[in-house]
Structure formats: C-alpha cells, structure tokens
Write a protein that binds this DNA or RNA. Sequence first.
DNA 1: CTGTTAGCGCCTTCAA
DNA 2: TTGAAGGCGCTAACAG
Lengths: 336, 336
Amino acid sequence: MRVTIKDVAKACGISAATVSLVLNNKECRVSDETRAKIIKVAKDMNYRPNQLAVGLVTKKTQTIGLIVPDIGNFHFAEMSKAVELECRNNGYIVIVGSYGESDEQAYAYFKEFIDKGVEGIIFAKPMLAKLSKEDKNCFELAESMGVPVVIFEPVSVKGDIGVVNFDYVTGGYLATKHLIDLGHERIGCITGPNNMISSMSRIEGYKKALSEAGIPFDSSLMYEGDFTVRCGLKALPYLLGQGISALFTFNDMTALGVYKAARQYNLKVPDDLSIVGFDDTFLNEILEVPLTSVTHPAEFLGEESAKCILSLIKREAYEERIYTPILMVRGSAIKK
Amino acid sequence: MRVTIKDVAKACGISAATVSLVLNNKECRVSDETRAKIIKVAKDMNYRPNQLAVGLVTKKTQTIGLIVPDIGNFHFAEMSKAVELECRNNGYIVIVGSYGESDEQAYAYFKEFIDKGVEGIIFAKPMLAKLSKEDKNCFELAESMGVPVVIFEPVSVKGDIGVVNFDYVTGGYLATKHLIDLGHERIGCITGPNNMISSMSRIEGYKKALSEAGIPFDSSLMYEGDFTVRCGLKALPYLLGQGISALFTFNDMTALGVYKAARQYNLKVPDDLSIVGFDDTFLNEILEVPLTSVTHPAEFLGEESAKCILSLIKREAYEERIYTPILMVRGSAIKK
DNA sequence: CTGTTAGCGCCTTCAA
DNA sequence: TTGAAGGCGCTAACAG
C-alpha cells in the first residue's frame, strides 16, 4: 500500500542505504548521477518516509505536545493556534490534550504523549501555590524521560524546564492604579481561586497600588471567583453591599458576568460602577460599553512558549522574556 | 533512559515475547505465576511500551488527525474539544492542524498526518461547490493510503469517506420563515462566500420560505459576506439602502458586525431592524439584545464526527445522522 | 507453557 | 562510490 524505501531502492537498482543517504541530504560520496536518479524515482513513486520508523530509530518525531485546561476556552484556543503556527514553521506538529479539571488527566496525557515520542511538552496549566501530587508526577516523568517542558509560572521543579513568564503583579497594579487615579477608593475585586499563583500575583499588584495611594486594604472587598461569567453574576450583589464604586475583575469573562448582573440591578456601567477587566479579549469589542482591560495576549504567549520549547529541544539558549502587560483604557471606568 | 520490554524480560528471567503476550492480554497459555510476576515487575519498573515501535508493527497508532480552517475560531475550538473528548474516551489522541486560507496547507497536513500514521482524519473544511485541486489531492492521498476521512458536506469523492451532515437548507428556511411570520417582506441576507456549499444551502432555504409566502426573490437584497464581523459592518448601509426591515445573517459574528454598525447609524435592534443569526453561539448571552439564531452546535458536530471516524476505523457501521437545526427565538427580531 | 525467529521501515556504522 | 549488516522496541508466527 505504502511505498517504502526498499521499493525505491529496487526501482533504482541500488541499496536502501544509499537511498536513505541521498534523501536525507547526507552530503556523502554518492555520484551525482545516482543521486539525481534516486531523487527522481522517489518523487515519481511518491515516496515519503514512514515517520514511525524514522522516529523509532532517530528518536526524533517532530512532534510536540500541548496540554491545556480547555481547548474550547477562547484563551487557550488562541494560544494553541499560535503554538501550532510557530511549530509548523519549524517542522513540528502538535498534539493537544485538554485535561479539564482533572490533574490526573493531565498526567495521563503526559504519559501518553511521551509514549508517543513527543520531543517536548507545553504545559499551559495555571499553577497552584502548592503543586499537586499529579503535577509533580508530570514533571518527574518528563525529567526521567529527558523531555523538556515549558510552563507559564515560575514554580520550582527539577528537570529541563522553560518558563514563559507573565507579570501578573504589574497587571494587577495597573488595573488598580487606574481606578485609584480616577478617584475610586472602595475598589472591589473578583479574584481567581485563592491558591492560584496568577491570582495571588494580581492581588499583590492590587495591594501595592492601594498602599502607594495610602488606601488601607480591606479584605471584605475581595470576592473569590473562578474566572467564569457566573461568578461575576454572583459576586456583584455582595460587593455592592460593601459599598464599592469600582470593580477589578481578574478576567474578562467575569467582567461580562458583572455587566449582566448590573443590567439586572439597573445599574449603568460606567456611571454607577466602574469596571476594569483582565485579558483584553475580543469581548471588548462586543460589549455595549467597551471594557477597559489589562492585556494578556494568548497569541504572544503561545508563540513564545513554542519558541521556548523548540529551543530547549535543540538545546539552544532561550532568553527568558517576561511579558509586561499594559492597560487598554476604554469606556468602562470613569471618574468617580 | 526508557525501560524497554527487554529490560522487563531480563528482570523476570524470561523472554520479551512472553512479556508482550501477557501485557497485551493475549489470553494465551501462560502460567498464572509468571503472568503475575511479569505484571508486577513491569509495574515496578514503570514500563510502558514505546508507541512508535508498537505502531510500526501493528499499524495502529491510536491517533486521529483533525484539520480545521482555524483552531482559534470559536466554532472550531469547541468542535475540537468535543472531538478530543470523544477520541480520548476511545483511547485515541488527536493531532490538530489549522490550514488557514491555504488549501495547500491542508494538503500538507494530510501528508504529514498520514506519514505519522494517523488512523483517520476529520477534515472540517467548508467545501466549495467545485473542489479545488488540492482538495482532490487530499482525498486521493487518503484513499490510496487506506485512511478514512470524515467531512461535513456531502461531496462526491471516492474513498473511505464518512459524512456528518447538517441541514443548512432547513436552517435558512427557519430563519427566513420566522421573519416572514413576523410580517417582514423585504428581508436582507448577508451570506457567506457564494461558492460555498453551506452558504448556497442557506440561500436555498431562504428562497423556499419566500416562495411559500408568495414573496418574490429579490437578488438585490443579497450581500455576499465572509462570516466576519467586518462584513456585517460593511453590509448594513448597503442593505438599508435597499429598504430592508429585517436581516438574516449567515452567522453570529456577522450579526455582531450589524449590531455595531446599527449603533453607528443610531438604529435600534429590534425596533428599527430585526435580525436573525446563525450558529447560536455564546455571543447571544453577551449582546445587549439577545440574538435570535439558528442552532449549529459545534460540540455535537465534533462528537459526531469523532464517532463517525472511529466507526470507519473499526469498520463498523455508522448510521449517518443529519442534524436538523432549530431556531432559538430571542429578542432581536420582532413584529414589523 | 515458553522461547526463538523474523520482521515492521528506517538509519547508521563499517567494509568493500 | 556503494552495499551489507545491525539494530531501534515491539509483536506475531512458529517451534519446542
């Protein structure tokens, strides 16, 4: 069914070894004549090497694994697009796995992908302050198999690890400072899960901005969310009860929930409530009042992580760049 | 670095063949004693078969390929999520490729994926009335390699092809009829590319509804779009010039563009303009006026296509189900 | 009951 | 300038 190297060799009347040499551009001692012939015949016969066989012997599969919480989520979809593009441009393809809520599933993908011979793994998991057992298993496995891994937060694990860093602290700071500059003092927060590093860092930035302005931190203004629309809906009544005039939501989806809840309470954004979001997704364009938001570019992060993993694979130096977000000012936050 | 079957065999003091038999549950004649020992040792040594080697000999890679126009696009992201889930539940993993605008890139992925040993390919390409040369190449290659393919429109090609069908005609019909029932007569359309089967089918449904109501078809009410926000923005002024009172956009993104344009013209949806969309995406929840839209469930289509390809791989019967859309009535279209 | 032998398709010495 | 031989890690016949 499939044309093999032997078929080509036979058709040329020479050995498979020579065909292999030529087709892999080993600039060896092969006469131009046979070389040309081999190339022509291979093309005519439509020969392409079986990558399973190639991988088995070379240990190179030109494949990288991408493990994300949810490929259906807009942020990770965008990221995966960028990863794929960058990989393709370097001759790699990508296998994807969504682990959902389950750390075990993530570990299962690690095993499966490594067994399939991926040369590296991009692990787009929002890390918790304390790594779960399964997380550790992932890193240990990768290390023991010599497979490099790229992650997005600087957690201390052994192995061949690359980090594509994002400055969440500055992100939180910028959002908060903007609201403070507009005259707001009671600024509510709808955070992510409290043990998630990226959420903790945003809070750190929030606190920094407050303290710079001499505003005391008030923990009753913090509502622990989970980055969903729903938590925005649920958080608003509580925070209104705390007398806030402005709100910093830790992502745009949550801001969306707040918009919807505000409509229910007959509140106007931004007149009655100023809002700053985080992620700067395309949602901004859609909302009736465009959302002021902190950039968190999935595309950039995807491309960068791909570059990082490719460098690790090639054992090239990769200069760790940490992305510093900026604030996109739109109409959802105004002077108090 | 990696534990091989030989290592396990050696540790057990037996041959690799026996280890293979036991671990693959070939219910052969192996004493319970050695069987138990093998299983234990394999586990202790943390042995997992190299899937490249397995694939090379069995021709089974437990991998399927998914080729989409753009994995960053919400519809395909959702679809791919469903594909992945269904595949995972059946022991398969998925490789993804986004071909963008380029048919050649799609073909390149076909080659690469097949060389990597995928057992089947889901080709989520909106087909044109006339297949491009590259499209044909894709199908021919797959056929010649004995790889089944699943597509989403019934185009006539040879090979092991499965079709997950969607009734776009009914979709177009439902949208149009709804508007007619509300008393509208001059109903504009922002279509997809004119040579795209799924767009042509929607138009067919549109015409059918018109003719049932005795309203003559007026081609000046048709604006050829491309499923983007932008084309919605551009189309509105033209269609307003044609005196429409209602609008059927061939997807929700385009409807979004119309919303934005309407704001610019100080028109109110639905008071000044009724709109029906297509896809029924989560955008509906976000818009200030929830969009009436025809369902086109990415998740369902993804799951179904995965089931279809898995059946083809196993050479099982797959009953071709054609999905009939329904209309989700919300607030964007009202009585004239 | 178990081990030996032979590949899968390819690459890589080493010898000619 | 080329071919033969060996092996990647595994499975599947066929022998014992």
